[in-house]
Design a protein around this nucleic acid. Sequence first.
DNA 1: CTGTGGGCAACGTGCCGACAA
DNA 2: TTGTCGGCACGTTGCCCACAG
Lengths: 386, 386
Amino acid sequence: ASSTIVQGEKRINSELWHACAGPLVSLPPVGSQVVYFPQGHSEQVAVSTQKEADIHIPNYPNLRPHLICTLENVTLHADLETDDVYAQMVLIPTQDPEKETMLLPDVVVQNKQPTEYFCKTLTASDTSTHGGFSIPRRAAEKVFPTLDYTQQPPAQELVARDLHDQDWHFRHIYRGQPRRHLLTTGWSIFISAKRLQAGDAVLFIRDDKGQLLLGIRRANRLQTIMPSSVLSSDSMHIGILAAASHAAQTSSRFTIFYNPRQSPSEFVIPSAKYQKAVYSTQITVGMRFRMMFETEESTVRRYMGTVTGIGDLDPVRWPNSHWRSLKVGWDESTAGERQRRVSLWEIEPLTTPFLICPPPIVLRSKRARGIHAGEDEDLETLMKKS
Amino acid sequence: ASSTIVQGEKRINSELWHACAGPLVSLPPVGSQVVYFPQGHSEQVAVSTQKEADIHIPNYPNLRPHLICTLENVTLHADLETDDVYAQMVLIPTQDPEKETMLLPDVVVQNKQPTEYFCKTLTASDTSTHGGFSIPRRAAEKVFPTLDYTQQPPAQELVARDLHDQDWHFRHIYRGQPRRHLLTTGWSIFISAKRLQAGDAVLFIRDDKGQLLLGIRRANRLQTIMPSSVLSSDSMHIGILAAASHAAQTSSRFTIFYNPRQSPSEFVIPSAKYQKAVYSTQITVGMRFRMMFETEESTVRRYMGTVTGIGDLDPVRWPNSHWRSLKVGWDESTAGERQRRVSLWEIEPLTTPFLICPPPIVLRSKRARGIHAGEDEDLETLMKKS
DNA sequence: CTGTGGGCAACGTGCCGACAA
DNA sequence: TTGTCGGCACGTTGCCCACAG
């Protein structure tokens, strides 16, 4: 359903927001119990400001590495300049920390990726001033209104609405030899207004009312770095801790921003997911696991890895934290970008005995084949979490 | 002198920075003693985020409304997107708060406005794609290299360097009937790259080595508002207080950003200026004063006002603070934009007895004449501060 | 099926002096 | 003195198809 969330007078379309955020991003439902990690919040700020939390940050002895909270409200937003999506969450720390031990029912967090949508990474031709946008055939047929093919050439005007409720007009035409779908008039205005470059991606959605929506996902995330001319990174890191600490001590609400495409990991996790990961699974060094990542085509893919160590990421400031408490190694050599430390709830342990240590030769041969087409599905059927 | 301040590998030209910051902005010298006001810092963040400091912000009982600090370092910066100038200051709270009572020698803070410079607000023609930039005659003759007027038409290529050390090339030509100075080729590239609009201002400087520098001052400051998708404004306000409080208690350095064109008032003041204002002058309700403001032509102008009240701006959270402790009224009816609360060190009290209450009729007649050309100079000669 | 490039027309950009405020 | 305009040339934009990967 195309649910929308009120933000002042504006509503950001939830489907569109999630499409821009990507398939791995899911927000806990309003009213549910969540776990908030100041460490993860700091990591997000560190990425934005390009500065790690410094040493000389004060201790907040009463601030635990995770806070059980009620998610009082979530509002969806998009940066006016870059269209980057982010979510504002209002959290209320739970008064009774004993509740933590209570095992909560598993909340079904539906992944809100829309069905009638497509996403295309822009080519040099798409972004050049020389021409328009080449629509992949399947995409056009699935998402755009059907053309009247009796016309010569078949063409129509499309209107698509972006995250800021701004309408963009495009001429959609089916022509060329061989025939193809193109966006011509209006496309270059859109490209230059959004400052899109080859490598960035656009996505189109047809919602349940037939309204077209469009969003963008920039490739070069480094460009999005904030000026940081407002507050020093030190003060930001301190602000995160002080705000959380104060909220925890007074059981009062506090507000955070979650930037799904900037943040290395989610730092507001459904309580049930956290507890299941922490209390239900025994993780040991040497254990094999899978973990989901987003591919360049904005689909999900699982990578295999092995737990190589268990221990605190920051033993001094954050002892006994589950945040990134696992050191891991990845099977594939292209693991340069992947985190060397992950949290329990991010991984899917392979508990099925005969899969714990697959023969390396098999893995290597599969890697040599290139894309692991069948592998994931095989494991999928074999592995069923309780 | 064209002093520069090192920032990593980059140096921002100090003269250019000050020209962009405006005539009223002066930074205390490195190593000097200053007074830092968390309240003022919060105000700057409030402007940036368009959100005031909320009620439910924790108390920092040990944090006083002003901190005596040593200014350990100042670095000049400019926003990469907007070219907005800002300064990073590293402050170290003074260990012994008793030092405060010690009267310091008056530090001469030279106003670093360059002499060989001009600033022009862009017209519709200047920013249109239809043409170039019309240089005011005086400006061209003062700042640009002299043209060879024997050529027909006289023309030359100018190279001007911006705050990011990027060079911009312009064709400077003297033509038209009547003759005038113009920038043609290269101008529109500059306009679109900096996204300048009519109402924004550009400024050119010739430094002592003959090098041309150029900067911009945007009119629409609302546009510069930061996305704030990084940290909630609450956390920012808390971060300011927590950082200052921690630094004060541990006598350790902390870092702040000062945005001269965003901040309503300076919140890092030379200690001598503060003490002189607080201890040397007796301010009373009804007292007349003058205060400097920047005009649209980026020159200084003094406005007259009367003290209408003295008291805490925020009696609950910041009792006994001198920050904006004066309520004031302004003589001129165009006072809509001017603060209704100012701090002691911002004003110049008129202590000369016969000027305390000038006949209103005289004032009115002067106002009716329009611009107060001579008034300020008359007062200048009459009033000499100790 | 779709990315790139050549061809070509239409439009916008940008340089010029003529006015007039 | 300088802001805006009409005139005009030239360069870019943008629509078309032909190829080829």
